[in-house]
Design a binder for these strands. Structure first.
Lengths: 208, 208
DNA sequence: GTCCGTCTTGAACGTTTGTTCAACTATGCT
DNA sequence: AGCATAGTTGAACAAACGTTCAAGACGGAC
């Protein structure tokens, strides 16, 4: 007669439910407001279920980090792929534009990442997730930059260093904007980054 | 006869003692390991003393943020001032070198800043400290960049935007290195930043 | 030497934390 | 229909948290 007190789900469904709930909690309350009880309430399940699927809270957060980072990277890649491979410069611009879109330039997302970074200094599990996902992120940038250098016939271009510099500039602008959104506008951020790209690629061979 | 169980100190001395202890705790254990009991133990005082000088723990952290940021900025300014004002480019290089010195490029310091950033999204008190200290930081950079542009006779130079970009690049490289020190060396970071400066100042007028 | 003011102490309180586990129940199988 | 399995629950636990406050002790004033 009465409604069932709970439904049974597959392990994959449950894990996704818990991960999404954890990400919402992090976005809302930051790292300090993230407790097993908060996550359970947000997911609409009982407290004990979390420890049934994750031995420790940190394991869930590591999974959430991996999920969020993968999703973000996939979204960036999709934006890049809207531009044909023949237009190497345009693909790079698509990446930059995506980096300053409302989905990324978001104080809530910043709170989530702050929590991940904090935990990565304490948990090797999270540290590993960071290393792999950030490596993928930089690989994408490196490929885009190398393609551009190749298209312009630039030789001896250090794509690795360029990718590190560009990702640092993007991350730094993202960081500053999330900490205080009044210092500059997203458009100014885009202009600054575009200029960096042109400067770096333009002077890579030592001439103009 | 016996040693006194405690010594009385001035309010300023006590506050400094507590601030330094809090900073050491943050460097060691990060934001999560920071409790009033840990700070008290590190400072060698009783638990109650903290709440005697600071109504709330966040007030102590805000004070610690202000202290650490001021000290860091003063150290940077001192390094810059070792180069004569006539050498605008050299002063900027001194700032860059100081940014990649062992004192700054330090995972322990990173943990401290992570805690400050996390708290700044929650406490208006800490947010205010961030806004003022970061404003000072960017003002110094802006002055150095404007001096360089003036020395080179560049007109229409947007020092504000340049300072934002340079600080973002520096912060981004600092962030990446602290999260994973194997991706690039400090010297590579210096080279990248120097190149950014030359590129930005060189192309500011639109010619080579 | 004694006294007073206040700086300092540490026990105590009420929350909240992560984790455990015995009990319960939905669900597929026979 | 009933059984076995396993997904789910929520009470319980010990530990740690920030904060309060009455009691204690140092150190200067007299």
């Amino acid at each position: 007669m009465g409604e069932p007190k709970f439904n049974r789900r597959s392990a994959d469904d449950r894990r996704r439910l818990l991960i999404d709930a954890a990400l919402r909690c992090l976005a809302q309350h930051g790292a300090d407001g993230l407790s097993t009880r908060t996550i359970a309430a947000e997911a609409g399940v009982s407290l004990g279920l979390i420890n049934h699927y994750y031995r420790h809270k940190d394991d869930l957060i590591a999974d959430a980090y991996h999920s969020a980072a993968s999703e973000l990277l996939a979204a960036m890649q999709a934006e890049v792929d809207r531009v044909p491979a023949s237009d190497a410069r345009g693909r790079l611009s698509a990446f930059v534009r995506a980096s300053f879109s409302g989905q990324v330039l978001n104080p809530d997302l910043f709170k989530v990442w702050l929590a991940f970074w904090s935990l990565s200094t304490r948990s090797v599990r999270v540290q590993e997730v960071h290393d792999t996902t950030y490596g993928d992120y930089r690989s994408l940038l490196e490929r885009l930059l190398a393609d551009l250098a190749a298209a312009r016939g630039i030789e001896g271009f250090d794509a690795r260093l360029a990718a590190i510099g560009l990702s640092a500039l993007l991350d730094g602008l993202w960081l500053e904007w999330c900490l205080n959104a009044t210092t500059f506008t997203p458009d100014e951020g885009i202009a600054m980054t575009e200029r960096w790209i042109d400067g770096f690629v333009g002077t890579a061979t030592g001439h103009c």
